[in-house]
Design a protein around this nucleic acid. Structure first.
Lengths: 340, 340
DNA sequence: CTGTTAGCGCGTTCAA
DNA sequence: TTGAACGCGCTAACAG
């Protein structure tokens, strides 16, 4: 039988209230009493029953998600998952609010971050641009006692407690390995299309990709990365222009969004055979895979990311450590053959 | 504010005890009273607070895992994950017992299944051979009121409530897509090595693989599948023999275990270039990937599978539906470039 | 058949 | 600085 506060109280020779004060690090207890209680906790191996505590406190976890607005399918999918989590709020004791900001706008993110009231918010998960001002705003919020987790794209220099997303360096390496093998010995150029180098996920993917090509497939030369701000029309124009200009392009790695534009720019399979790898399963990329326009799509499960963010933020609010393996977001690789 | 049993009692004009009886479908309540209470539940949108209920009941969930003994690395990894879950038992209110049985021995599984006491066991997760006797034993257990989930390999005809594992047909298709692309237009033969056709996961992988080769890569011809009972020495002998006999083999798909034997049988990369795809990241396969002996490894996260089995079995014991997307086990694809 | 009451493990008044 | 007592939402005796 697991020990309870009663057992601790008896063991330490004090009352329940005193045990509670010590356990919750509240003031008004003599140093010696604190030691006695802590010794009893150690001795009996006490672990607090979080659900009983939450019941007594009628606790809810007020959480805020910050993500970019706009037509980006992936971000809208992410938002849908957050809304699904809001549906479960009564059961999970969460109170989730969504704040959307213009994409690629660090100042807007900073504005939201600074407007948050630590008294009303327990944790924040955000999709951030990796810029110094956002990093600083995150640190300010953490200093004010709010736990912050990054979502999808990390903020490596900041005080965020956790990154809920894939290892984007490994994702880029994977793309490199796939494209290298799909080209299978042919020499030529590979066009790399990115959204914005202000995003650390795009940065990481680009460098992982370049590293693998350099070390394993030296016959493939990178063109780009071209920046498109994840805008479909820009992607279409950029890809069309590049394919016209460079006839030696035999593969494309699209590491950002705007996938619809990429599809529109792709020439007939018969005319010109290109190995194509893109990111995120959306309506568009799914169809492109099925039609054989794309060879592979690298995906991150945004449902998992959202649930993970909630678990991590809640655990942290309770001062617990989450199961780390459970929070590792996998790099999914989809071919037309294993599309879910 | 979420409604409580008190609110229901007031709304229905009855006492707490009666509400409790109705909510838990216990006998001794007049039909009319039941209806009144249920109407109040509907009207107020009541949902029971499971953690409060568990607190009051001091509930624990006694669970049994059945899996094959023996040297199979994957199964040992699975067992390690179950033991990790046992460590969390006090927090998760579980009481987990592991039963091991000789591999490929349906009778042994049936023996364990039939020996289980419904009064002492709440749910069972098992790695099963897909044979009629096991299926029947599962059905008998379900009839006696115990929830059963299959783990890793499914039992499609049975009354199991859930399958905790990957879509093995899709996994086989993925392997087919990868091998087809890695061979890249070359014609030749592909050796398929399996453990046992008594396992539905092996069956499914083999057929998914064959389907993709037939429809998308007609220049590749399948040799096998050869059955090895997942024994490394048998695998080594079978692969060596096949490679000697058939000089046109340009690829190998190993869809079962015994990966060490496969590695030992593989000729020098320089001598004979083979595209190799295997299953499950283990110490051996990891090294083979790193050295370039394997091109890809398809993996299932057994930690996720174990946690999922526990969640599903617990949820079912409480009469709840789990978040289905969370319980979908992903098909992981590892290249040397994205090895974790 | 139905209602009253005392906990489950913990947090939080209010007195002492 | 400490302790007693009540309540969180629910279940389980025990009466009636």
């Amino acid at each position: 039988m697991r020990p309870t506060v009663h057992d601790i109280a008896a063991e330490a020779g004090v009352s329940l209230a005193t045990v509670d004060r010590v356990l919750n690090a509240r003031p008004g207890v003599r140093r010696k009493t604190v030691d006695k209680v802590q010794a009893a906790v150690e001795r009996l191996g006490y672990v607090r029953d979080v659900s009983a505590a939450n019941l007594a406190k009628k606790r809810t976890y007020p959480l805020v998600f910050i993500l970019p607005e706009g037509p980006n399918s992936f971000m809208r999918g992410l938002e849908a998952e957050i809304r699904a989590a809001m549906q479960r709020s009564p059961v999970e004791r969460t109170a989730i609010r969504i704040e959307t900001v213009p994409p690629f706008d660090p100042a807007a993110i900073v504005g939201v971050l600074d407007s948050l009231d630590p008294a009303e918010v327990n944790g924040v998960a955000l999709v951030a641009t990796d810029t110094p001002d956002v990093s600083a705003a995150v640190d300010r919020l953490v200093d004010r006692g709010v736990h912050v987790a990054t979502l999808v794209s990390d903020l490596p220099g900041s005080q965020r407690i956790h990154f809920c997303g894939i290892d984007n360096l490994a994702a880029g390496r994977t793309a490199g390995g796939l494209i290298g093998r799909f080209c299978n010995g042919r020499a030529g150029k590979v066009l790399v299309v990115a959204g914005s180098m202000k995003l650390s996920d795009h940065m990481d993917r680009a460098s992982g990709f370049a590293a693998v090509l350099r070390s394993e497939f030296p016959d493939l030369e990178i063109v780009g990365p071209v920046e498109t701000n994840d805008d479909a029309d820009t992607v279409r124009q950029a890809v069309t222009a590049a394919l016209d200009a460079e006839t030696e392009i035999i593969a494309i790695y699209s590491l950002g969004a705007g996938t619809r534009g990429l599809i529109e720019a792709l020439p007939d399979r018969e005319q010109r055979k290109l190995a194509v790898v893109a990111h995120e399963v959306t309506e568009h990329s799914r169809q492109a895979l099925a039609e054989g326009l794309f060879d592979a799509v690298i995906n991150q499960d945004c449902g998992h990311e959202v649930r993970s963010a909630i678990r991590v933020l809640k655990a942290r609010a309770d001062g617990l450590m989450p199961i780390s393996a459970q929070e590792r977001i996998r790099i999914d690789i989809f071919l037309k053959d294993n599309l879910p």
